[in-house]
Amino acid sequence: MSVPLIYTAAGIFLFLLGTYGLVAYAHLLRKILAANIMGSGVFMAFIAVAGRTPGAPDPVPHAMVLTGIVVTVAFTSVALALAVRIARTSSRVHLSGRDEEQ
């Protein structure tokens, strides 16, 4: 098993771990954190799977992942602003229709 494949596999596991966190936790901040971990997993798989070319590393996936990181930070900032707004208007830290304290 080559080195990039180890990281690709780790990326896939991070993605699934994040998916679990996003589904299993009710606290909005935790959901956002989980989505970020999912994103990191995708980026890691992307760089690693494209890093198997012989010779100098391929710059195109690097540029794409940079774009992905920036897009994710934009999403995260809006998600957090929404979560803060929800906490301030209705004193909730989770979506409606779920039990408190979960």
């Binding site: 299993a24 936790y25 009710a26 606290h27 901040l29 935790r30 803060v84 906490a87 301030r88 004193s91 909730r92 830290v93 779920r98 039990d99 304290e101 979960q102």
Partner: peptide, 10 residues
């Protein structure tokens, strides 16, 4: 705004 909560899985 909403107080400090512990967060556990559902």
């Amino acid at each position: 705004a909403a107080g400090r909560r512990l967060s556990r899985p559902a």
